[in-house]
């Protein structure tokens, strides 16, 4: 049985901002049907103020993926794109009254969609979209080392199970578990590069970045 919060169920049953924005000038597509969830985020951004005037989503996925996408649109409408980039996956989960641990990847997908859409608006080829960069660690779900590293840092993940809950990496054939552990060992041994600040101040964000 599902252990979803009432808010998740409410957003699943009556999603807000479902569909496609008219005159969208930012489109972010993340995930895939093969992996079990995917999201398309369209936004209309005022070029003068860089404020998000409208945002709409379409999602293929489970109830929590649909709810995460819907609540995300509410969280970012009215914000500037820089503010929207600071909406973390944790903020999405919190706005839903929490997500089951194994469903945290749904909130990560929402956060990734914002990054992808804003990259698209800026005409950057997904510079921050680390799913396309780095080395594939989990072949089952096509998750890269860079993505695992970023999500692990942002969410203070220390175990393989946590990484799986947030990124799906390691959730199928499990053959990448050693590689995931290697990443965790490395990042929690080294101080983090602070180019992108963590969602929550942790020692890694207060320690000067290693050069």
């Amino acid at each position: 049985m599902w252990n979803y919060s009432d808010k998740v169920l409410e957003y699943f049953r009556n999603p807000k901002n479902m569909g496609e924005c008219d005159n969208a000038n930012a489109v972010g597509e993340v995930g895939s049907m093969a992996c079990g969830d995917a999201m398309r985020l369209t936004m209309r951004i005022d070029p003068a103020t860089e404020r998000i005037l409208d945002a709409k989503f379409k999602t293929f996925g489970c109830a929590s993926a649909i709810a995460s996408a819907s609540v995300l649109t509410e969280l970012i409408i009215g914000k500037t794109i820089d503010e929207a980039l600071k909406v973390s996956n944790e903020d999405i989960a919190r706005a839903l009254g929490g997500l089951p641990a194994a469903k945290m990847h749904c909130s990560v997908l929402g956060h990734d969609a914002v990054i992808a859409a804003i990259d698209n608006y800026r005409g950057v080829k997904s510079a921050q979209h680390d799913m396309d960069e780095g080395k594939i660690i989990c072949r089952c779900f096509a998750v890269t080392d860079k993505h695992i590293e970023r999500v692990a840092r942002e969410n203070n993940l220390h175990t393989i199970d946590e990484v799986t809950n947030y990124t799906k990496a390691g959730g199928a054939c499990k053959s990448c578990h050693m590689a995931i552990q290697d990443i965790l060992d490395r990042i929690w041994r080294e101080p983090a590069p602070c180019a992108t600040p963590c969602a929550h101040p942790k020692p890694c964000c207060t320690t000067p970045a290693a050069t």
Binding site: W2, F12, R13, M33, F60, G61, C62, A63, A65, I66
Partner: peptide
């Protein structure tokens, strides 16, 4: 096609 099973099951349960 085009939809995910858990979402279907939850809707059916509703």
């Amino acid at each position: 096609a085009y939809v995910e099973g858990e979402a279907i099951l939850l809707s059916l349960s509703d």
